[in-house]
Design a protein around this nucleic acid. Structure first.
Lengths: 140, 140
DNA sequence: GTGATTGCAAATCTTTTGCACTAAA
DNA sequence: TTTAGTGCAAAAGATTTGCAATCAC
């Protein structure tokens, strides 16, 4: 078990999705998943890793984020052209986006009611529904 | 009036928002607004302009799209990191995004009912609510 | 004329890729 | 071993910027 130990948790998580647990992936998994729900960019995560004395290249951070996304450990959220955010919360939910801070905040799906979704056009199926509430500073 | 003539319409539109009606802005305005609701990228619009023998540089297309957005003639829609779409429909509405085709399609706001929007966090105000329904090909 | 606008090319920013090196199984 | 994974530096793609030339008023 050892589910309470960060290293073991990261190891189990990687094994669970069939990704070889390399030093870099374990390090990034710990940064990503040991601190609750997070929304990070590749640059941010790389900076954190460097600050924590983990030697990982930016290219590997990009690769890892995409691999984690492909196996369902992460979800990519698009709110700004030219920058990709990765969300450790992969359950059904939506987002506040703080424009001035470039920061995302989860909205539990029970707090939004998207009723009466239109039918997808013929020949297509819904892949995902994203609701993004963009926020600016100051009350109105 | 002359509202039925493309040139006059484009001219009036630019005057209406206080942008100097240069040859390039008039040309782009006609491409954008004379064909109903459109969703274009800068590259696409530039290609169209070149195909129509309008001499406009890509840099000017980018500038113009942003100026038009700033004055409310266009709306920027973000669905893919790394590519910005501009929408000629500036009224309250949402989008289907055809993943495989990289194409946006409007959803009239009356066809979606986003009820029970959560309160914006203290100190912030809602700037805009975007609903994006991502579609893949094939029924389920 | 005079200040706004344009075009070009260079710069910037994020992300991807090729390939020799390293590490996990 | 053998194959997957990593790092680096270079490439790619989208967008922006600096500045001299050009245009609208």
């Amino acid at each position: 078990m050892n589910d309470h130990r960060p290293y073991a948790r990261a190891l189990d998580r990687l094994k669970g999705v069939g990704l070889r647990p390399t030093r870099q992936r374990l390090a990034l998994a710990r940064l990503l998943f040991d601190a609750g729900d997070r929304h990070v960019t590749a640059e941010q995560l790389h900076a954190e890793a460097v600050a924590a004395d983990m030697r990982v290249s930016l290219a590997t951070v990009y690769n890892t984020l995409h691999q984690f996304t492909a196996v369902g450990l992460l979800r990519e959220v698009v709110v700004e052209s030219g920058r990709a955010y990765f969300d450790t919360n992969t359950s059904d939910h939506h987002h506040f986006y703080h424009i001035d801070q470039g920061r995302l905040e989860d909205i539990h799906h029970s707090r939004i009611n998207v009723a009466a979704l239109p039918e997808p056009p013929a020949g297509t199926a819904v892949d995902r529904v994203d609701v993004i509430i963009r926020l600016k500073n100051g009350e109105i």
